[in-house]
Amino acid sequence: GTLHLNGVTVKVPSLEKAIKAAKKFAKKYNLEVQVHGNTVHVH
């Protein structure tokens, strides 16, 4: 999967790991997580 954090793109081995990391990051910075196919966006 691919993880987008505020314009930074990170390749992640699995989508589940990407979503987990995204949710952790989003919670910390009070951001929103959106999943588009195998790409996770945090903004």
Rank of each mutant, 00 (worst) to 15 (best):
K17W: 14
V42A: 05
L15W: 06
H41I: 15
Y29P: 01
N30M: 07
Y29I: 06
H43E: 03
T9N: 08
H4R: 04
P13T: 14
A22Q: 00
V12W: 13
L5S: 04
L5K: 04
V42Q: 01
G1F: 15
K28C: 15
L31M: 12
E32F: 08
H36T: 12
N6L: 15
K27I: 05
G1D: 09
K28G: 03
S14I: 06
T2G: 05
T2W: 15
K23A: 08
L5Y: 15
L15T: 02
G37N: 06
K20G: 04
K11W: 15
I19G: 00
L5R: 02
K20W: 05
K11L: 11
S14M: 06
G1Q: 07
H43R: 11
H36E: 12
I19V: 06
V12T: 06
V10K: 05
K24S: 08
T2H: 13
V40D: 00
V12A: 05
P13N: 12
V10L: 11
K23R: 12
K23C: 14
K27M: 05
N30Q: 07
A18L: 14
S14L: 06
T39F: 09
F25V: 06
N38M: 08
V33Q: 00
V8Q: 06
K11Y: 14
A22M: 12
Y29W: 07
L3A: 04
T39I: 12
G37F: 03
Y29K: 04
G37L: 05
K28P: 00
L15Q: 00
G37R: 04
K24E: 14
A21Y: 12
E16Y: 05
S14W: 10
G7T: 07
H4E: 07
V8M: 12
L3H: 03
S14H: 08
P13G: 13
P13S: 14
L15K: 01
L5I: 15
V8E: 05
G7Y: 06
F25A: 07
H36A: 09
V33L: 09
T9H: 10
G1P: 11
A22D: 00
I19W: 04
N6K: 07
V42R: 01
K28L: 10
F25H: 04
Y29T: 04
H4D: 07
K11R: 12
N38L: 10
Y29D: 02
A22P: 00
A21F: 12
A18G: 02
V12L: 15
K24M: 07
K17S: 11
A18T: 08
A21G: 03
E16H: 12
T39V: 14
V10N: 02
K23M: 12
Y29R: 04
L31H: 04
K23H: 09
E32S: 11
L5E: 03
L15P: 01
L31P: 02
T9R: 09
K27R: 09
N38R: 10
G7L: 07
N6V: 09
E16F: 03
V40T: 01
E32M: 11
N38V: 09
N30T: 04
I19R: 00
I19Q: 00
A26K: 04
V40E: 01
V35P: 01
L15I: 11
K27Y: 03
K20L: 09
L3F: 01
T9Y: 13
V35Q: 02
K27W: 02
G1K: 05
T9Q: 09
L3V: 11
T2I: 15
T2L: 14
K23G: 03
E16K: 12
T2K: 12
K23D: 05
A22G: 02
N6G: 12
V40K: 00
F25C: 13
L5V: 11
T2P: 03
E16N: 09
K11N: 11
L3E: 01
P13R: 14
A26V: 04
K28Q: 10
H36L: 13
A18Q: 01
N30I: 04
V8H: 13
H43W: 13
N30E: 07
G1R: 03
H41R: 13
Y29G: 04
V8S: 06
E32L: 09
N30A: 08
T9E: 10
T2Q: 12
V8A: 08
L3W: 01
L5F: 15
K24W: 10
A21C: 14
H36W: 06
V35G: 00
K27V: 04
G37S: 04
L31Q: 03
V42Y: 06
L31Y: 07
K24L: 08
S14C: 13
H43A: 09
A18W: 10
V42I: 14
K11I: 12
K17M: 13
N6P: 10
K23E: 10
V42L: 13
